[in-house]
């Protein structure tokens, strides 16, 4: 009887009915993923002696805020945080500038040697930093850039993946758009600013997020280039705090949680863009 279909279920309830087991499995899996982070938060408010209590007490007896305050007084975490921000923002900016320009160049121009240059840059993507860190370190030393912002930022200014990614994206732009701008008398730099940039907004934000995340967490390179407290970045500072004050687990958890917070906030605010950025890399790459 066509007219007498049952009252339509709300889509959410219908979806729930369709996948009850999957939902339970995913809930368990998510709990497993979150467990270390909840453990971290819980431990960060405890006394050192309460850390390994059996059974584990997820809600601490009392919230010891001191665990969060004391480490900040002992070590220059604020400075490390500022350093990380300066370095990650500058490197991301440089990455964007170089990758938009080079991506455009490799996608839409045909000067001699173009493919060779692109090939060289692309090839470095497959060579891990770890394989040439020794001469890179010596070079940065010879430039007098150890323990400087220049040393932390400039050598990381080019990102092979970002260039490749921008090239792939710009290639999809119709040539007519660029030619039309040229006929209108726009200079080449003008075209970059008023044609390429606006059309590449999604790709640029995707690269920005990716580069920022990479650089914020970068470890080996800053470990070698910044040996002085004043130039350390947060991950290096944290690792040094860990090896120097490692018995006080609650304090360690507290500073780790604090260090994690800014990225986590940025992530939650921009989570859609974050995830789409990564997804786009996969599909386009």
């Amino acid at each position: 009887m066509p007219g007498a279909s049952p009252r339509p279920q709300r889509p959410f309830v219908r979806r729930l009915r369709e996948h009850p087991l999957l939902l339970v499995a995913l809930l368990l899996q998510s709990a497993l993923v979150l467990l270390p982070l909840i453990y971290m938060l819980s431990t960060s408010f405890k006394l050192p002696v309460e850390v390994f209590e059996v059974p584990m007490r997820w809600i601490p007896r009392e919230l010891r805020i001191e665990n969060y305050v004391e480490p900040l007084q002992q070590r220059p975490f604020v400075r490390w945080f500022i350093n990380s921000t300066i370095v990650a923002v500058s490197v991301t900016f440089l990455n964007l500038v170089t990758s938009v320009l080079a991506g455009y160049s490799f996608a839409k121009f045909s000067y001699p040697g173009r493919n060779i240059l692109f090939g060289f840059i692309l090839a470095t993507f497959f060579i891990p930093l770890e394989a040439f860190i020794v001469p890179l370190f010596i070079l940065v030393r010879d430039l007098g850039w150890l323990n400087t912002y220049a040393g932390l930022i400039i050598p990381a200014g080019g990102n092979a993946f970002a260039i490749f990614f921008m090239r792939q994206n710009i290639m999809t732009l119709p040539n007519d758009l660029i030619e039309a701008a040229r006929i209108d008398g726009a200079s080449e730099p003008r075209i970059v600013l008023s044609v390429i940039l606006p059309l590449m907004r999604t790709a640029i934000s995707s690269i920005a997020i990716f580069c920022f995340m990479w650089n914020w967490n970068s470890f080996l390179y800053p470990l070698l280039v910044a040996t002085q407290d004043a130039y350390r970045t947060l991950p290096i500072g944290l690792a040094s705090f860990e090896s120097a004050y490692s018995t006080n687990y609650p304090q360690l958890m507290a500073v780790s949680f604090l260090a994690m917070l800014p990225v986590l906030i940025v992530f939650f605010v921009l989570q859609r863009q974050f995830i789409e950025a990564i997804a786009l890399q996969g599909v386009k790459g």
Binding site: T98, L101, A102, K108, R114, F120, P135, A160
Partner: peptide
């Protein structure tokens, strides 16, 4: 076009290809 590639080429030349 070449000028646009130059910043990247220089950075990669100095800090990747050379090392």
């Amino acid at each position: 076009g070449f000028a646009f590639a130059l910043p990247a080429v220089v950075l990669f030349g100095v800090f990747a290809v050379y090392p």
